[in-house]
Design a protein around this nucleic acid. Sequence first.
DNA 1: GGGAGAACTTTCAGGTCCGGCAAACTTTCG
DNA 2: CGAAAGTTTGCCGGACCTGAAAGTTCTCCC
Lengths: 207, 207
Amino acid sequence: MTAHPAAQTVGLRDRKKQQTRDALATAALHLVAERGLENVTVEEISAAADVSSRTFFNYFPCKDDALVADHSVDSARFLTRLAQVPPEVPALAAVRSALGEMIDRMQADRERWLLRMVVIERNPALLPRLVAAGVETERTMTELVADRVGVPPDHHFPALLAAVTGAAFRSAMLRWAAGDGARSLSDLVDEAFETLAAGLPDPQPAP
Amino acid sequence: MTAHPAAQTVGLRDRKKQQTRDALATAALHLVAERGLENVTVEEISAAADVSSRTFFNYFPCKDDALVADHSVDSARFLTRLAQVPPEVPALAAVRSALGEMIDRMQADRERWLLRMVVIERNPALLPRLVAAGVETERTMTELVADRVGVPPDHHFPALLAAVTGAAFRSAMLRWAAGDGARSLSDLVDEAFETLAAGLPDPQPAP
DNA sequence: GGGAGAACTTTCAGGTCCGGCAAACTTTCG
DNA sequence: CGAAAGTTTGCCGGACCTGAAAGTTCTCCC
């Protein structure tokens, strides 16, 4: 037996895969951060990660996804959480609650996520990609919410809630990056959701 | 002098340009509607509009833009309207009010807009494009709103309001198309904005 | 251990997207 | 009419992305 009898669930193979994926994403983020999206090719990213450019596409369906997607934050877990929130909790609060775990994981990966958001901010072409990453999630979320509040799936509320909370979350993420992570993401999301719950009233101009 | 002494502001040249642009957009929408986004090339679209494929790119920066962008609904006018709404009107209501004109124009172009939204619905890759079309608008909108409510530009409210109203509007557009335009877009947008103003409370399950 | 087979990577070929360039053409204006 | 300005077009090349086939690396089971 080798010196590592434990850690059986993940073999060498999976560890290498994760490494490669990580190397590609990291290389992509750093290169784009310093040169801009247009001035970085897939070949350069692949070279920096020491793999062929064909391999790049085995991991990411397109260049942008290497910058925006993140395996560690998979939406399936968020949806599971959402389904688990007790049904008497209002939908908006339920969504906020279910986001908690995802937010924690993002804070744990603080460094990388801040870089990611800065890259997105400086390359607006990526912003739609951020939406794309959530579009399938929003669809499922719509169904979950319809179920939860007991309205037909073509009612306007579930789709509106999904779209609006998605927008609010993105807004908080961008704000997080803009402040370089000075305030916690959790706080910023809370602030946004409270404003939503209050019906988006005009804020006080000056105290 | 010719038989058309009036209509001086637009010459033959500009009229032709508008025609070409329109032909390209129309061809793109119809082809994609029947074959799907992947199975339509720029060459085919250009051929259908009787221009070279090189000309296509003189009008649209990429294939998707021919499907999503619309010259008749330029956001500059919306922003102008927004700036004109009296400052005592709360920001959320002001946005709804400023959207009115755009909505009217979309209803006038009902046919084309419904087709467009159906195409987007059936080709989810385009949905992020719809966001992209509004991203610059949202940025300006953020500044306008900050100004209007008298908070610094890095306050969370303006960006949140811009993102959220954008999402709500898109949600209403998709709903409009899903119902094949049975209910007026104006109604659907009102419904969404009222729900926003109420703080997104859970709807009544059944009467 | 050791080999059969699965999984991953690489190379290669090819289609589509998209932008720069300069020549031909069309409209506008003096 | 003729010059100026704008538009269309073909040509070319780089970049993105995909399929197929061949080569390499890991896993599993004996």
